[in-house]
C-alpha cells in the first residue's frame, strides 16, 4: 500500500520525528511504499545539515538521509515553513542573498502543494505532530 507521512515537529524537542521514522521504517519493512514524507511547521528543522547531537545520541537528520538513500524516499520540506525558520537550500540562499544554506542531503524544498498531492496520491496519510 502507498503511504504518505506528515511530520509537524522538529527533531529532539518532540518525539514526533522519531515516531514518524520508526513508522516509516516499519512500513517499508512490511513491503509498503512511502509516496512522500512531508515536513511542515517546525518539522522543517529535521532537514538541518547543521544539526550536531551529542555522540551517544541518535542523529535524527542523518537517520532520515540514510533511510531516504536506502529506499529512494522523497523527503520534502515545505518552503513557506522553511523560510520562516531559516532553512534554505543552496539555490534559494543565492536567490535571497543569504551567505549560507543548510538543507541536508536527501531532502528537497518544495511547496505545500506537495502535501496535498501526497494526500491525493497516497492511500493513507499519517500525521505525526504535537
Amino acid at each position: 500500500m502507498k503511504f504518505g507521512i506528515q511530520v509537524n515537529e522538529g527533531p529532539y524537542q518532540h518525539q514526533s520525528s522519531d515516531s514518524a521514522y520508526q513508522f516509516t521504517k516499519a512500513a517499508l519493512e512490511k513491503g509498503h511504499e512511502i509516496f512522500r514524507v512531508f515536513f511542515y511547521h517546525d518539522g522543517v528543522n529535521n532537514a538541518s545539515s547543521l544539526t550536531i547531537p551529542p555522540q551517544d545520541d541518535r542523529h535524527i537528520v542523518d537517520r532520515w538521509t540514510a533511510l531516504a538513500k536506502e529506499h529512494n524516499l522523497d523527503l520534502v520540506v515545505c518552503i513557506a515553513a522553511a523560510q520562516r525558520r531559516g532553512m534554505l537550500d543552496e539555490k534559494e540562499a543565492k536567490r535571497q542573498g543569504k551567505n549560507a544554506s543548510n538543507l541536508a542531503e536527501g531532502f528537497r524544498i518544495s511547496g505545500l502543494g506537495q502535501l496535498i498531492e501526497a494526500g491525493i496520491q497516497s492511500e493513507r496519510l499519517v500525521v505525526f505532530g504535537d
Partner: peptide
C-alpha cells in the same frame, strides 16, 4: 502557536487542487 496560521496556508494552497 503557529498551527492555526499554517493550517490556513495549507487550506488556501489545497483549494487549487479541486478536492
Amino acid at each position: 502557536s503557529i498551527y492555526a496560521l499554517e493550517s490556513l496556508e495549507v487550506v488556501l494552497i489545497g483549494a487549487a487542487f479541486d478536492q
